[in-house]
């Protein structure tokens, strides 16, 4: 199966490991993720006022690019991109007047016909079936205990979420299918502080402390998530957390696609662990999920 894929701004930088591992593990499942040509940044957060169309232009422009390929689906990895693209898609589907205005404004593009569906990669995996994913596993993640973390935009608001907004199970189902153990973390839906990481890093550190400490205290070895902004706030901001809370113990953050790539036993360079703030490699070696003799990318 070939499907257009929308990376979004941060998968080319801090989310590099997310993208690499996703493309490689999708290939194992016979899914070819083809980067959407000429994609534009979705704007990251959806505009929440009724009278603002300007900020819906970028998401709709991307959907037009999909339409121009004569495709009907667009897959995202980043939860934020997913939510923003889907919200704008829903807006124009439900409001022909607004769609007309936007089509007229973007007169250089073809008119958007609302025939594109926005999907999160996790939804695609659910469609394929976790049993089928299980069949491809070469190295089950035995002995690894994980704390799934959804954050906000993957599940809320519920019209734009991929799972139940209060009791989602999709990440649990995937991680279990990959052979890992899962803990219950009541903070799995709590916000990581999102864009406040720019102007209120202390607030982000407070929120991160709760999420990560609960996971650590409940026996989790790492957190698993699907958003590069959550990843930055919960991984890179551990430096600030440590500064604010001296008792804090670091814990690695992993993208769900990195877990898949690990379980599918793909090359280490497909995993993208080299840009993590808290290095997950020692943990994975301890659990014998990475072999010691392999040279690390950062040591090259």
């Amino acid at each position: 199966m070939k499907i257009p894929y929308f990376p979004g701004c941060s998968l080319k930088t801090i989310g590099e490991g997310f993208e690499k591992s996703a493309i490689a593990s999708a290939a194992v499942l016979d899914i070819e993720l083809n980067e959407l040509p000429r994609w534009v940044c979705c704007g990251t957060v959806s505009s929440l006022t009724t009278d603002d169309l300007m900020h819906h232009l970028a998401p709709v422009r991307n959907l037009i690019r999909v339409q121009d390929l004569e495709e009907t689906q667009l897959v995202t990895l980043c939860s934020v991109c997913y939510s923003t693209l889907k919200r704008s898609n829903t807006l124009v589907k439900n409001d022909p007047e607004k769609l007309k205005t936007m089509n007229q404004f973007m007169y250089r593009e073809s008119d958007y016909q609302c025939n594109v569906k926005v999907l999160h990669f996790l939804e695609l995996l659910r469609e394929i079936g976790f049993d089928k994913i299980k069949e491809k596993i070469k190295k089950p993640l035995r002995g690894l205990t994980l704390s799934p973390y959804y954050g906000c935009l993957l599940v809320r608001p519920k019209e734009f979420g991929i799972d139940d907004p209060e009791t989602p199970t999709i990440l649990q189902a995937l991680t279990k299918a990959l052979g890992a153990d899962v803990i219950d973390n009541p903070y799995q839906l709590k916000c990581c502080g999102s864009y406040h990481t720019v102007d209120k890093p202390n607030l982000v550190a407070d929120l991160g402390y709760k999420i990560l400490t609960y996971a650590r205290n409940s026996g989790a070895d790492a957190l698993v998530l699907s958003c590069p902004l959550c990843a930055f706030n919960l991984d890179n901001r551990q430096r600030e957390i440590k500064r604010q809370y001296p008792d804090f113990v670091e814990i690695p953050i992993l993208y769900f696609t990195q877990l898949m790539a690990l379980a599918f036993d793909l090359d280490e360079e497909r995993l993208g662990f080299d840009i993590h703030y808290v290095d997950p490699v020692p943990l994975l070696k301890e659990k014998q999920l990475l072999i010691d003799s392999l040279p690390l990318i950062k040591e090259k």
């Binding site: 534009v40 704007g43 232009l57 970028a58 422009r61 973007m106 250089r108």
Partner: peptide, 20 residues
């Protein structure tokens, strides 16, 4: 702050894909 409105591209006398 770019909103991908493409106004820059429309303005370019060199016909560059400025927004891109």
């Amino acid at each position: 702050r770019c909103v991908a409105c493409n106004t820059c591209t429309k303005a370019c006398p060199q016909e560059l894909e400025v927004m891109d």
